[in-house]
Design a protein around this nucleic acid. Sequence first.
DNA 1: GTGAAAGCGCTAACAG
DNA 2: CTGTTAGCGCTTTCAC
Lengths: 317, 317
Amino acid sequence: MNGVMLMNQSGAKKATMKDIAKAAQVSVATVSYVLNNVSGQTIPEETRQRVLDAASELNYVPNLAARSLIKRQSGLAGILVIRRHDEQWWERAAYSPFIDAMERELTSLGYHVVLSSLDAKAPNMAIIAERKLDAVFVLGAVQDTFHQISRHFPTGVPLVAIDSHIEDPLFYRVQYDYERAALTAIERNNQHCRFLVADRGSIDAAAQLTALLSLPTSQVLVLETEEQLQPFLARQTGDGLILNEYVGLLASRWMAPSRYTVICTAGTPELLRSLPSSSSLLFEDRKHLAALELMQSLRNDSYSGPPHKSILIRPLT
Amino acid sequence: MNGVMLMNQSGAKKATMKDIAKAAQVSVATVSYVLNNVSGQTIPEETRQRVLDAASELNYVPNLAARSLIKRQSGLAGILVIRRHDEQWWERAAYSPFIDAMERELTSLGYHVVLSSLDAKAPNMAIIAERKLDAVFVLGAVQDTFHQISRHFPTGVPLVAIDSHIEDPLFYRVQYDYERAALTAIERNNQHCRFLVADRGSIDAAAQLTALLSLPTSQVLVLETEEQLQPFLARQTGDGLILNEYVGLLASRWMAPSRYTVICTAGTPELLRSLPSSSSLLFEDRKHLAALELMQSLRNDSYSGPPHKSILIRPLT
DNA sequence: GTGAAAGCGCTAACAG
DNA sequence: CTGTTAGCGCTTTCAC
C-alpha cells in the first residue's frame, strides 16, 4: 500500500471511460451511451445505474479535447479583441462590459469562452482554426486587420464583428446607431451641437456625425491622449456631444457637464451619476444579444446567410 | 470539376498532416518532425523545404485538440470569475482591468485563455478537468465556494486565488495589502479615519481595517446597493476611507471628495482625475504579475511548493 | 534520415 | 441491449 500511485485529496488520479467500463463491467461504448444519454439506445436502468455510480465513484470528468476531436465541434466560442499598441484606459474600459456580458451569455449557453487579445498590427487569427472555435466575435477590428481574416479564416465559422470599422459586406456586424443617437440627443435637449469628442473606438461615428451635423473639423476631436481634451474644450463656445462616458467624465474637469451630452458607448452609464447636472444618452442594452442572434442565424442559415448583415443598436428615447 | 468539394476563399478545406505528407511525399512522422522542429531529428534541408512549402500551400493549421490529447497539456489557462447573483456594476467593473491584464499576460506567454463566470452559489469547476487547463486563476472566491474546489479539482493544476476570501492555507493567493494601504493613506494625509466604505469584494479588508482602526461598526459600510451610500455618508462627521474608485466616484455626489481618501482597488485610478480635490492611494500595478509568478513557481516546484503561499501587493507611497 | 505503428480519450456505426 | 471496431489528428518510440 505504498507502491500505489499517489492520490490527491479527491481520491483518484484521472479516470477515463475505460476505467468506468472496467469498474461497471461493461464496454466503453455502453459507458458513452449512458453518460451522454444517447437517444436511440435503450439501456436497462440496472446497467445505467451501475455505470453512473462507477462514474461518480471514480470522479469522472470527460476530456473535451478528445470529444471535440471526433465531433467536429470544440464547444469553444472566441472573443477576439483587436488592440492597438497605444490603447488608452478609457478605450480598454469601454470594451470590458461587453466582453463581460458576452462571456456570461455564451457561458450560460454552454460554450466555453476563449478570450484573446490580438495585435492590431498583426492579428493572428490562427486561434480560430487551431482551437476549432464554433463561433467568433471580433471586437474593434479595422478594415486593415480584416484583410488578414478574410484571407485566412476557415469558412463556415460564424464570425460577427462588433464595434468594428469595416465596410466589407462579407462580414456580419453589430454596431451602435450613432446617427440616430446624435439626433435623439440633440432633439431631446433641444440644443445645437457645436462640437464632438469621440474616442478612437468610435472613429467611424465621428466621421458620420461630422457629416450629419456639418461640423467643421476643427470642432471635432478624436481623442488620442488625455492632454488633448483640455485645450479642445477650452476653445469651444457652444454645446456639444461626447462619446464614451469615461471621456465624458474626464471632460467634466474642463467644462460644465450641462454643456454637453454624453452618448454612452462604454457600457457603464452609471458612471455619470456622479455628475449631477449632466445629461446622457443610452443605447438599448442588447449589443451582446444582437451579436448572439446574428451568430445563431449564421449557424443555421449558413447557406443562405442571415436576413441582415448588419445590426444597428438603437438609442433609448 | 463540379463534383469537387466546395472550397472557401482561402483555397482549401482543412488540411491535416496527412495531406501535407501526401503532398510532400513523406510520412506524417516526418511532417511532424519538420513542423515542430523536433530536436534530435536531422532532416535534410531539401525535405524540410518540401514539407514547409506543402504546409503553407495547403494553409495548414495544427489541430490543438489533437495535440493536447497526446501531450498532456492543453495550452489553456483559465480565468474563473466567481460571480454572485446580485453583482453590482462597480464590482463588475473592478474585476475587468485585472482580467484584461491577466489575459494579455497569458496570451503573450503563449497560452490561450479561457474565461468563465462561475455562479458563487454553485461554482462548477469541472472546466478545469474537462479542458485540462494548464493553469487556473480564480477571482473572488469565498471560503464556501472553495470547499467545492478542494474536493473536486485535480491536483497538480497550479491554481492561484486572487482577491479571494479564504483562509485555507492550501491555496495560493494574491491580494492587496489593505492594512498597509490604510496606514499609508492616513499617515500621508495626516488625518484620522472616522469611517470606511468598501465594496463587497473587499469585505475582508473591511473587517481587517475595522479592527485596525478600531472603528465602531456603525462607521463601516460594506456597500450592497447604491442607495445605502447617501444615508451613510450623510451621518458622517469626520474624514474617511473609501475602497474602490467607482464607489469613490459615487460618493462625490454626497460628500466633498476632500473628506475622504480613495483606496484604488478597481484598477482604474485614472477615474479620479475627474475629482480635482480628491486624494487617492494606489497599489503597485503587479497583481497580475504576482499571480503569474506564483503560478510559475507552482509549476516548477510542484513538489515543494513555492516559497510563500500568499503574496500581498503593497501600496505605492 | 525516414516511416510504420501504437496510442491519447472519446464517439458512432455496425454487428451480434 | 451491448460489445467490437474504426477512427478524429497528432506525437513518438522504434525499427528500417
